[in-house]
Design a protein around this nucleic acid. Structure first.
Length: 442
RNA sequence: GCGGUCGUAGCUCAAUUUGGUUAGAGCACUCCCCUGUCACGGGAGAGGCUGCCGGUUCAAGUCCGGUCGACCGCGCCA
């Protein structure tokens, strides 16, 4: 049987319909019972009139979250009862019959009210049913789809990167060990090495998947399992080609969000940022000069930016360039992974950098070394044994084009886009040191 | 891992500053009343080992020590 969705009820005024969904709120006046129903498409008010005796009997015992099938007639509301600012505020469902499909206990928290993060996470199967959570993950779904759509249109091919790996990209630190295999195995921290291998096959590739970081951090921007939106492209001039691609990608994502998620952004009180035709870009040393001049802190001999510095740079970018985004490039090559390309015009510094958005780093991008001998030397310089990477190195021994790519943290992007205070709110089922879907057994 | 803040009803919070009767409120829940509500309203009720262990004191939710947990910040990172 074809499903009737709540969003389509208005067009069925005067008709008898059957909807299915959840009871959201009950307002029982004795002879008159109002029930707000919810399905994935929205809300509608239902009313049980005194003469509908059977429905009245069922309706009196309904509470929030009961799952029901409701037969009724769509009526225009009397003028004085119209709620102009609400979905379906000008119609209501006159309930004729209710079938209970699933009963519900009372919720252990106040729906739609602010919750402590700990409580929110303990009750995710239920807290995710709120408007706010639904809006967050609708937006996230649109971001992922837009990422795929844009890159596909740019000639990229999607691939599935393995999550069980032998040697990890950064040299062994901070990865989860996996027992079982006859060789040392880890959970992948990044699809990096496989992305590069795949450039040899498809020239332009992307992957959207989970990566794992065994870091005992507890911050508002870290997860032990997160989603990395990765791309890698061959035949580039240098890292600026990757920066341009990311700029176009972000502009496309924001356009898609504007087209499809205005309700969700309104629910969350968030604005969709403008992506400038050219995102401002500073070398690390220039950025450090800005921090010194504008904010009075001298960090010029540090090899990296601290969180406070990132927040300052974004503040500066917004003020000076009216941009929520800013690239910081040319970090010391010694602080970057072995596959990072050194800038021949600026020795000691990397051809690549980070993209900062509203105060946090959301992307690292770079041109990669594609010459076999240079790559092997770079590994040795980092104290890595090239023999352990012989599987990966095959790609480079047998001809790789100049290439580069990036990784974009999906949850960080989502969180900053929607003004969420903690990145855990932008992960459906976030994992941290103390939480893997708590069993609530304590 | 380090530092800060916090832990009171199912949830969100008062009472802790200055130790002092029986630890309160709103929401949710149960029962009663209610024909136009939409955060419905009115009345009644139930619900607490104040995270846990120890100490100080005539007296501890409140002070002290420990422990467990949470959140925020930091290192590292996307």
């Amino acid at each position: 049987m074809e499903r009737t969705y709540i969003k389509d009820l208005k067009a069925k005024e005067g008709q008898e319909v059957t909807i299915k969904g959840w009871v959201d709120i009950r307002r029982d006046q004795g002879k008159l019972i109002f029930l707000d129903f919810r399905d994935v498409t929205g809300y509608v008010q239902g009313v049980i009139l005194p003469n509908a005796t059977e429905a009245h009997e069922v309706g009196a015992k309904l509470r929030g979250e009961w799952v029901v099938e409701v037969r009724g007639k769509i009526n225009k509301r009397p003028e004085k009862n119209v709620q102009a600012d609400k979905q379906n505020g000008d119609i209501e469902l006159e309930i004729l019959a209710i079938t209970v499909l699933g009963s519900a206990k009372e919720l252990p928290f106040e729906k739609e009210a602010p919750l402590n993060l700990d409580t929110y996470l303990d009750y995710l199967p239920l807290t995710l049913r709120t408007d706010k959570a639904r809006a967050i993950f609708k937006v996230q779904s649109v971001i992922i789809n837009a990422f795929r759509e844009f890159l596909t249109s740019e000639g990229f091919t999607e691939f599935q990167a393995p999550k069980l790996i032998g040697e990890d990209a950064e040299g062994g630190a901070n990865s989860f060990n996996v027992e079982y295999f006859k060789h040392t195995a880890h959970l992948a921290q990044s699809p990096q090495l496989y992305k590069q291998i795949m450039v040899g096959i498809f020239e332009r590739v992307f992957a959207a998947g989970n990566v794992y970081r065994a870091e005992k951090h507890s911050t508002t921007r870290h997860l032990n399992e997160y989603t990395s939106l990765d791309l890698e492209m061959g035949f580039i001039k240098d890292h600026t080609d990757v920066m341009k691609m990311e700029t176009k990608l972000l502009a496309f994502i924001m356009k898609k969000l504007a087209e499809t998620c205005s309700v969700e952004f309104a629910t969350l009180g968030a604005d969709i940022p403008e992506v400038p035709a050219e995102i401002p870009s500073l070398k690390l040393r220039e950025a450090q000069r800005v921090i010194k001049d504008e904010f009075g802190t001298d960090c010029s001999n540090e090899p990296d930016l601290e969180p406070q510095h990132e927040r300052w740079l974004c503040e500066y970018s917004k003020k000076k360039f009216n941009s929520d985004f800013i690239f910081v490039t040319h970090f010391p090559i010694s602080k970057r992974p072995f596959y990072t390309y050194e800038d021949e015009n600026d020795p000691g510094y990397a051809k690549g950098g980070d993209l900062l958005f509203r105060g946090v780093e959301i992307t690292t991008l770079a041109q990669r070394i594609h010459d076999y001998d240079t790559l092997v030397k770079s590994m040795e310089k980092k104290g890595l044994n090239p023999e352990k990477f012989s599987f990966y190195l095959q790609a480079f021994k047998y001809g790789m084009p100049p290439h580069g790519g990036l990784g974009l943290g999906l949850e960080r992007l989502t969180a900053k886009l929607l003004n969420l205070e903690n990145v855990k709110e932008a992960a459906l089922f976030p994992r941290d040191l103390n939480r893997i879907d708590s069993l609530l057994s304590q």
